[in-house]
Amino acid sequence: MTNTHVDYQLSQLDQLEAESIHIFREVAAEFEKPVLMFSGGKDSIVMLRLAEKAFFPAKLPFPLLQVDTGLDFDEVLATRDSWVDRLGARMIVATIDEAIAAGHVVDDGKTSRNRMQIGTLLGAIEENGFTAAFGGGRRDEEKARAKERVYSHRDDFGQWDPKNQRPELWSLYNGRIHAGEHMRIFPLSNWTELDIWSYIHREQIEIPSIYFAHEREVIERDGMLLSVGPEIQPKAGETPVTKTVRFRTVGDRTQTGCVESEAADTAAIIEEIAVARVTERGATRGDDRFSEAAMEDRKKEGYF
């Protein structure tokens, strides 16, 4: 049996957990057809863990939805399968090719597959009639998101209207929607990046191995370290080198760079982040690189 908190105080991490569990249960109780948008990244895995806790010992009362770009890292898919097996969860995989075939997405030859994920996702939500979709977005990620609600209303085009958000008071969430609309739900709204890592550390949560330092053959392109693979081949003047690296995000492998790091476990990563906050001066210049460094796990635009 877990010990009594003699002083009746909850740590901030326990408070965040309690708040997120409350949100999961509220959505499961009030929405007809929720779904959890699963990217394979650490934030969506933390969501899975919280959902597991919210409904234990019952299975998750909603399926998971993933957009398959065809360019996911094998390690990410392996972790996904391990989670899905353990939870006995139902997994829906929406592929971009299917979305093109169904007309949800137009392949004009100019739009990247990365961008086409958005249409694929919205198509899958519409096709399945999902009324609420959990996403791993956090308010500390960027300025615009600082104002997004936990329950974020989407119109029948799947769009967010920041000018016209519903007030959100206390822990009373308003889940009313009209036919054709859906609600994005952000149970991790109040978590910071450091909270996410601390929770992964505390709960010993299984995340894809590429988050941790490992040796990899990489090339440097546009100031990013890219993993050499079927799609990424050295161009003239580029020399592949083997470095000790880790990934900070787990997007598609053509777009996701890794960073040199010796951080081989969660404690080391937390230390790396904590130290980076005060000493990473001048290491990265220019706005692009800044946002890359600041937002460890920046989502692909529009995905969540």
């Binding site: 408070q15 965040l16 601390s198 969660t266 230390e271 904590a274």
Partner: peptide, 17 residues
């Protein structure tokens, strides 16, 4: 106030809100 350092994890875990 600084959270830098090796015990950052413990700090984040045990801090209150």
């Amino acid at each position: 106030p600084t959270t830098a350092g090796a015990d950052a994890a413990a700090v984040t875990e045990n801090a209150d809100l």
